[in-house]
């Protein structure tokens, strides 16, 4: 039986999927997960979930969002001439900073 393992690094954070373990039951799954996924990286908590208990819906079944190009929403997508309104300058700075933070400018 396969158990998917989710690790939470710090209290309050999300449990992120980090791999899986083979185990006959929940107790063994918890132990194996602790050995394989809790010993090398900072860990506050682990979830073990039977794989068949996880519901999945895929891209072949539904049209997911997030694919339409919405670059027009960003001020940096427009060419501007010198002497912009101060609101535009501030907005550009703001967007550029956000992109740098996300690593999108690379």
């Amino acid at each position: 039986m396969i158990w998917e393992v989710f690790r939470q690094e710090k209290a309050g954070g999300y449990h992120a999927h980090c791999g899986n373990v083979h185990a006959p039951d929940r107790e063994m799954a918890r132990q194996f997960a602790a050995i394989q996924h809790g010993r090398r990286k900072p860990t506050n908590s682990l979830w073990v979930v039977p794989r068949e208990e996880i519901g999945e819906i895929g891209a072949d079944e539904v049209a997911f969002g997030g694919t339409t190009d919405k670059i027009y929403r960003w001020a940096t997508a427009y060419n501007t001439t010198a002497g912009d309104a101060s609101e535009v300058v501030e907005s550009e700075d703001e967007q550029a900073t956000a992109e740098r933070r996300r690593g999108d400018d690379r």
Partner: peptide
């Protein structure tokens, strides 16, 4: 017997 038991005993 399994990868999991192998790692556990190695630990």
């Amino acid at each position: 017997p399994t990868l999991e038991s192998d790692l556990a005993l190695a630990n």
